[in-house]
Amino acid sequence: MERELLLECQRNDRNAQRKVYEKMAGKIYSVCKRYLKNDEDIEEVLADTFYKIFTKISQLQNPDIFENWAKKIAVNECLQKLRSQKMLHISLEENHMVSSETVENISFEKDILGLLRFLPEGCRAIFNLFAIEGYPHKEIATMLSISEGTSKSQLNFARKKLQELLISQHI
């Protein structure tokens, strides 16, 4: 992101904010879609994320890390949304069976990110945080108020479930 554009955003320049939104909306939307299933929730979190970006942009010390900073805000907003809906309940006992019929309906989504939506909310969040965002288990445990062991168990559960889905689709 251009330094001057970010400085203009810090001065609450609406045109600069619009340009930043246009450049980043797709990327932030993709982050939100990895965590949330409901389009209305995604749109709400997208709006909340940009609100927070533009109200906190003066705290950004290094404009070179703007994109990562913005994505981190989006992740935190998604987790907050899941917590508020009590969808972040983590349990290995949950039986989340996915029928082959359901999976066949997503034949156009033959990638892991497309299959993530079939994971339970809690383990999908942990998979995203660990495998995609790169957070260590200790930090995930702190973020989600769970133990490191639970984080590791849920990651393994997510990997096994994704592997089953991939095998069933011959991907």
Rank of each mutant, 00 (worst) to 15 (best):
92 L>M: 14
142 T>C: 11
81 K>Y: 12
25 A>E: 03
68 N>H: 08
41 D>M: 07
118 F>K: 13
165 L>K: 08
111 D>W: 12
129 L>Q: 03
118 F>W: 14
54 F>D: 09
144 L>I: 06
61 Q>I: 10
19 K>D: 01
106 I>Y: 14
20 V>A: 00
87 M>N: 12
27 K>T: 03
18 R>V: 01
139 E>F: 12
30 S>G: 08
28 I>P: 02
102 T>Q: 15
114 G>D: 11
109 E>L: 15
45 V>Q: 07
141 A>C: 03
13 D>I: 06
25 A>L: 05
138 K>E: 09
72 K>V: 06
12 N>M: 09
154 Q>H: 15
114 G>I: 03
165 L>D: 11
127 F>P: 12
34 R>S: 03
72 K>L: 08
94 E>G: 13
139 E>W: 09
47 A>N: 02
26 G>D: 03
114 G>S: 09
118 F>Q: 11
119 L>G: 12
104 E>W: 02
95 N>Y: 14
49 T>N: 00
18 R>D: 10
168 S>L: 15
16 A>D: 07
166 L>F: 08
81 K>S: 08
116 L>T: 09
44 E>T: 14
44 E>L: 01
131 A>V: 09
92 L>H: 08
18 R>Q: 09
116 L>Q: 13
56 K>T: 09
6 L>W: 02
165 L>W: 11
74 A>G: 07
3 R>G: 06
68 N>E: 05
40 E>T: 04
122 G>I: 03
139 E>H: 04
33 K>A: 04
165 L>I: 15
147 S>T: 15
143 M>E: 08
77 E>N: 10
58 S>P: 01
129 L>D: 02
91 S>K: 09
95 N>C: 14
130 F>D: 04
41 D>I: 06
34 R>G: 07
3 R>I: 07
9 C>D: 00
97 M>S: 15
171 I>H: 10
2 E>D: 14
68 N>T: 00
97 M>E: 15
128 N>C: 15
50 F>K: 05
23 K>C: 00
90 I>F: 11
169 Q>T: 11
139 E>C: 08
135 Y>M: 02
33 K>M: 07
96 H>I: 14
112 I>Q: 11
153 S>Q: 15
77 E>I: 09
33 K>V: 05
34 R>T: 08
26 G>L: 04
85 Q>C: 12
6 L>T: 05
47 A>I: 10
73 I>Q: 05
109 E>I: 11
37 K>V: 07
128 N>W: 02
50 F>Y: 06
149 G>I: 11
11 R>W: 05
45 V>P: 02
76 N>M: 07
101 E>M: 10
53 I>H: 00
11 R>G: 03
34 R>P: 01
22 E>C: 00
85 Q>V: 08
4 E>W: 04
156 N>P: 07
76 N>T: 07
7 L>C: 00
134 G>H: 01
